[in-house]
């Protein structure tokens, strides 16, 4: 068989649009997941039932539902239920963020639990209120500890964005499908997407690993 990457080069615009779509969806989802994780993670950590129970339910539900099912639900079922149509981007962003947020919440909770109880006591004993002790004492230490796990989660999210092609969101995988359909070169198109994903993700895992190593040394 003959590899013909020339047709791909002719379609570089489509690939570039796909890459932009992948990256913008990933960035939005990573930020949203971090925010959701912070809020829900604080709820999970709370000793108050009214904060802990909903947070626990959230985490359990969204950790244990396939992202693919969530995307399809938000794209096809949600509009029927509410009369509000969502764009492919929005449906995918919501679904991936909820799933990523559930995992991030557990990372945040773990990071906060890894801090000695004495840090809370010391912060309270000098008169800090909850927002002050979070901002000045707990989060700076907890975030440092959860950075490696969170970087890995961000990488997972980046890879998961490919699922958004199921609702025809224009990201890398979708662009490959478009190119393959037009030029009858599925092998080259899908191989190119795999290589591009690898080229995006692999450096990130290297960075994550070195961050992890550096933090372990500084402990």
């Amino acid at each position: 068989m003959q590899w013909d990457f020339q047709s791909l080069l002719n379609n570089w615009r489509a690939l570039l649009t796909g890459l932009t779509g992948t990256l913008s969806l990933a960035v939005v989802c990573i930020l949203a997941a971090a925010l959701i994780g912070l809020v829900v993670g604080a709820g999970r950590y709370s000793r108050r039932g009214f904060a802990r129970w909903p947070a626990t339910a959230f985490v359990e539900f969204f950790r244990n539902t396939p992202v693919l099912v969530l995307i399809i639900w938000f794209y096809f079922a949600f509009p029927i239920l509410t009369g509000q149509k969502l764009s492919a981007f929005t449906a995918a962003a919501i679904a991936i963020s909820l799933n990523g947020g559930a995992f991030a919440a557990e990372i945040f909770r773990g990071g906060m639990q890894s801090l000695a109880r004495g840090q809370w006591d010391a912060a309270r004993a000098i008169g800090m209120n909850y927002p002050q002790l979070m901002r000045r004492v707990i989060l700076p230490q907890a975030i440092k500890r959860m950075l490696p796990a969170f970087t890995n989660r961000a990488i997972e999210i980046l890879k998961t964005t490919a699922i958004a092609s199921i609702v025809a969101y224009y990201e890398l995988l979708h662009s490959a499908r478009v190119i393959a359909a037009a030029d009858f070169n599925p092998i080259e198109a899908y191989t190119a997407v795999a290589i591009i994903f690898f080229a995006l993700v692999y450096p990130l895992t290297i960075v994550a690993r070195s961050v992890e190593r550096r933090l372990r040394v500084s402990e």
């Binding site: 010391a122 209120n129 230490q141």
Partner: peptide, 24 residues
């Protein structure tokens, strides 16, 4: 109340067995 807690702790200092300094 939260304000009571802060008001008391501003006037009462505490030193712990494990020091509990902020490591960062």
């Amino acid at each position: 109340s939260g304000a009571d807690l802060v008001a008391v702790r501003k006037r009462v200092g505490m030193v712990f067995q494990q020091f509990n300094l902020f490591p960062h």
